[in-house]
Amino acid sequence: MDAPAIEIRSLTKTFGSVHAVNDLSFTAGPGRVTGFLGPNGAGKSTTLRALVGLVTATSGEALIGGRPYGALEHPAQVVGAHFEGAFHPGRSARDHLRVYASQAKVDTGRCDEVLAMVGLTEAAGRRVRGFSMGMRQRLGLATALLGDPQVLVLDESANGLDPAGVQWLRSFLKAFAARGGTVLLSSHLLSEVELTVDDVVIVAGGRLRRACAITDLREEASAQVRIASPDGDKLTAFLRDRFPAAQALSATAATVPGVTAAQVGAAAFADGLELHELAESADSLETVFLRLTSQEAAA
């Protein structure tokens, strides 16, 4: 059976005069890892907090399987959520989980089970005070997993993980989604979750900028060709005739978007233009992300 989907419908949240979230709508479906991306202050945490009832929306709805979090009968058994830094430093990892075990309707055995799942068995009896950022993230995930939920809502859970940790989280979340689970993972770094997510929801300034599959975003990362010629005048004329979309870098160099090196090379050969440079480069996904979340995109 598929897990419940997460639906955000026209969600708006204002704090005083600040619009933290502005008419935001998107869906995170079962069987997918959805990356909820945007720069710091984009409204990601506020949206996730509204989703699990920590914050009351000014207007709009945030639903899990069609119901608000507070209306779920045993919320911890449906949704596992974790927000940054929610530990008492003087409590051991196992005790932290044992505190919540009764409410998640599980026994102490399950606490050790989730600790094993996130690789913290050795550190189970240690106080959280001495934990590294990566260990805290793992314990946060263990907390979310306590009630064996079908939906995971994770706020910046890849933040502070070392490369091995990011890889571990990736395979864990992918496996969770492959079993039909719904995962919504926020991050301010696309590169951190690029290989983990199936879908992306990109927000900036509290507004939706793009919701699509990560593969669509990759296609958008269009190729461009950089060319240079010793004959500046001839280059200018060539670009004006052949590639009007080109952008001059200097009097003797330019970039041409949306084409391949072969196309530009053939045209230059046909026109008898001497080329000293002809190189393809692609916008990185990060550049596309930055473009989507930049201020100009808002205008």
């Binding site: 699990v52 911890a76 949704v79 959520a81 940054e84 929610a86 530990f87 919540y100 409410q103 907390t143």
Partner: peptide, 14 residues
């Protein structure tokens, strides 16, 4: 102070 209120309210939203 320790932000455990987040998890506490996740476990008991009422």
């Amino acid at each position: 102070r320790h932000r455990t209120i987040d998890t506490t309210l996740l476990m008991e939203p009422r």
